[in-house]
């Protein structure tokens, strides 16, 4: 169980998260929706060690996570697909996947995992020797997801995976997330495209100005008139 327990975080002197509590159980897909600047990315930053909370706790299977350095978090089984994809532009596709396995004790067997990523995203196999900077936005997103899978995480955090992608490509990414989840990974999905996120996730949290203002099963939230008006109107 990955859980945030009343986490409060401050960034450049301003409180950006107020007593945020959420949990992601093994094997679940959970969505976090909310407007730009509501604290979704900050929540992921706190989980991955990029920002230390001033109050509350981040717990992984009951053990506190918030004192860990960013580079130690992935070793605990939590991998982040960052916003904007952040693939290494001058490394090849294969090298990007390989660096994803850096934290593993058995990293020399990275080729088996790379083969699995190529199965999930066949287009990446065709681009294997190309530099990641030459890929399209959709291919880079697939690569960023593949790179995160290389660490063999149990929790996958995705930050705005649909950002800037064509609808067709979004379908590919969504399918992949479902497949990954079917293999047993828990997924925490941060999305501005709230409607699409609610279709994918079983449960969701709604963030507003750094507070959780609604939570529950996706179907309930999607039917909630307040949520509908605020986030699903487009």
């Amino acid at each position: 169980m990955l859980a945030l327990d009343r986490v409060t975080a401050v960034y450049t002197g301003r409180a950006v998260l107020h007593e945020v509590s959420l949990r992601v159980a093994p094997g679940e897909i959970v969505a976090m929706i909310g407007a730009n600047g509501s604290g979704k990315s900050t929540t992921l930053k706190v989980i991955t060690g990029g920002l230390r909370p001033v109050g509350g706790q981040v717990l992984l299977d009951g053990e506190p996570l918030e004192a860990l350095a960013p580079e130690a978090v992935v070793g605990r089984g939590i991998a982040l697909v960052p916003e904007g994809r952040r693939v290494f532009p001058r490394l090849t596709v294969v090298e990007n996947l390989r660096i994803g396995a850096y934290s593993r004790a058995d990293r020399n067997r990275y080729r088996e995992d790379a083969a699995r990523v190529f199965e999930l995203f066949p287009v990446l196999a065709q681009r294997a020797r190309q530099e990641a900077g030459t890929l399209s936005g959709g291919e880079q997103q697939m690569l960023a997801i593949g790179r995160a899978l290389m660490a063999r995480p149990r929790w996958l955090l995705l930050d705005e995976p649909s950002l800037g992608l064509a609808p067709k490509v979004i379908d590919v990414v969504w399918d992949a997330i479902q497949k990954i989840n079917a293999d047993g990974l828990a997924v925490l999905l941060v999305e501005q495209k709230a409607f699409a996120a609610l279709q994918l996730a079983a449960r969701a949290y709604v963030l507003e100005n750094g507070r959780i203002v609604a939570e529950g099963p996706s179907a309930t939230l999607a039917a909630d008139p307040r949520v509908k008006q605020a986030y699903l109107s487009f």
Binding site: P70, E95, Y102, R147
Partner: peptide, 24 residues
Amino acid sequence: AWNGLALRASSQDLGTAALMGVSI
């Protein structure tokens, strides 16, 4: 080498390299 690859990745994006488990 693993650390050689990590060096090249870090020279492109230090923050993301840390997410991969690379210790600066």
